[in-house]
Simulated scan of single mutants.
Amino acid sequence: MATFRFDTRVAQDPDRVWAVLTDVSLIRQWFPAVQEAHFDGTRRHLTTSDGTLNVLPDAGGSRVVYSQEILPETLAPIVERAVSEGIAGIARYFAAHM
Rank of each mutant, 00 (worst) to 15 (best):
S49A: 11
N54I: 10
T42V: 06
P32H: 10
Q35L: 07
D50R: 13
Q29R: 15
G41W: 12
E36P: 00
L53S: 07
T47A: 03
A33E: 08
G41T: 06
W30C: 01
W30D: 03
E36N: 11
T42K: 12
A37G: 12
V55C: 09
L46I: 07
T48G: 03
A37V: 13
L53W: 13
P32V: 07
Q35D: 10
S49T: 03
F31R: 13
L26C: 00
V34K: 09
R28H: 04
A37T: 06
R43N: 09
A33F: 07
T48D: 06
R44C: 05
T47N: 07
T47L: 00
V55S: 10
F39H: 13
Q29W: 03
L53D: 05
L53R: 14
P32M: 06
T42R: 13
I27G: 00
T48V: 13
Q35F: 04
S49V: 01
E36Y: 04
H38C: 01
H45V: 08
T42E: 13
G41I: 08
T42Y: 08
R44V: 14
D40H: 08
Q35I: 02
T47W: 01
D50G: 08
W30R: 03
T52H: 15
Q35C: 01
L26D: 00
T47Q: 02
V55D: 05
N54C: 13
S49P: 00
D50A: 15
R43S: 09
A37D: 07
Q35N: 11
H38F: 14
T52F: 15
V34Y: 05
A37W: 07
V34P: 11
H38R: 15
D50L: 10
A33C: 10
F39A: 06
R44I: 15
I27H: 11
G51I: 02
R28S: 07
Q29K: 13
T48I: 11
Q29E: 15
R44W: 07
E36M: 05
V55K: 11
T42W: 06
D50N: 09
F39I: 02
G51D: 11
T52G: 09
F39T: 02
H38N: 10
F31W: 15
E36R: 15
W30G: 01
A37C: 10
N54H: 14
V34Q: 11
W30F: 15
R44N: 12
H45P: 01
A37S: 14
I27D: 01
F31L: 07
S49F: 04
L46N: 04
V34A: 14
V55N: 07
H45G: 01
L46D: 01
T47P: 03
